[in-house]
Design a protein around this nucleic acid. Structure first.
Lengths: 154, 154
DNA sequence: TATTGTTATACTCTATAACTATA
DNA sequence: TATAGTTATAGAGTATAACAATA
């Protein structure tokens, strides 16, 4: 019980966590709660913009989502048709576009996050204050350390 | 700084973690280290069987991977062609098939895990013993609590 | 009649290559 | 010449529906 972190025991949990975040009923319900006929990557664009709290370039959205530029372009077409985002030419660089949420897009992202964060909060509701704080700290550190490893590979 | 776990701050990290686990260079390198021309879901089948340390039914593999049955059937075709798994009729139920790793399949899964777990271990190498232990404990608890929420939805 | 798995098909998500416009 | 983005196309990953075999 008092053994050190056993990576082999943790790995399946990490994989399941990944699935819960991407393809679970949780995600489907949150999409319903957002109340829009939108696909999941499209919603990811919205929450990326929402969490950034400012307009972002296409390339910046792609970098944060860890996908490739042309994919974001396609997603933005759909979002723009739905009136969820607006494309504005970057005043500092005529080549670039700044993508900003519309009121409708921002509200939808807000409703989605409300649902997801509600479940997260509920999951740790009966944790001790200290455990919650510690988990947040260590999780962020772990992800950063792991991403540093990825960066080292390039 | 001594604030409680802020779900909104943690969410982007969780999403990035998910990407690192599924589509990062880390995964690509581990695939190379395994030394087989295999796709990622195919490798997921192998490590699922490897971690189980026993033959599994098709349905059980699907459940653990959180995908649907027919998808696993398709993956198994390729793995069987490559001599990485064997299908055996379950002696207790003629309808079911038990899938077991061959020596070749087990060795490939072992090499893959060796690479992945090596990076994980490296990522936490300079953590204190206590932080490692605590993180493992809380991560597992978090995933379980979250999955309980998912189960509640059905 | 219910369960286990397979076959056939369609859909979702993401990448690569070639191109346009601006820097 | 290099960078930001787009268009067109191809590929990877997964699901649904219809079916066969056994329980």
């Amino acid at each position: 019980m008092s053994e050190a972190l056993n990576p082999e025991a943790v790995l399946p949990h990490l994989m399941q966590l990944s699935t819960v975040l991407n393809r679970s009923q949780l995600v489907e319900r949150a999409m319903e709660h957002a109340g829009l006929p939108l696909d999941r990557p499209g919603m990811t664009v919205l929450i990326t913009l929402h969490l950034a709290r400012q307009p972002l370039r296409v390339g910046e959205i792609a970098a944060r989502m860890q996908v490739v530029g042309p994919h974001v372009t396609r997603l933005l077409h759909e979002l723009e048709r739905g009136g969820l985002v607006q494309r504005v030419v970057d005043p500092n660089d005529q080549r670039a576009r700044l993508i900003e949420l519309t009121g409708k897009g921002s509200a939808a992202a807000g409703r989605y996050l409300e649902a997801i964060l509600g479940w997260f909060t509920g999951a740790v509701a009966d944790w001790s204050e200290e455990d919650r704080r510690t988990f947040g700290r260590l999780l962020m550190r772990f992800v950063e350390d792991l991403q540093a490893k990825v960066a080292d590979l390039d």
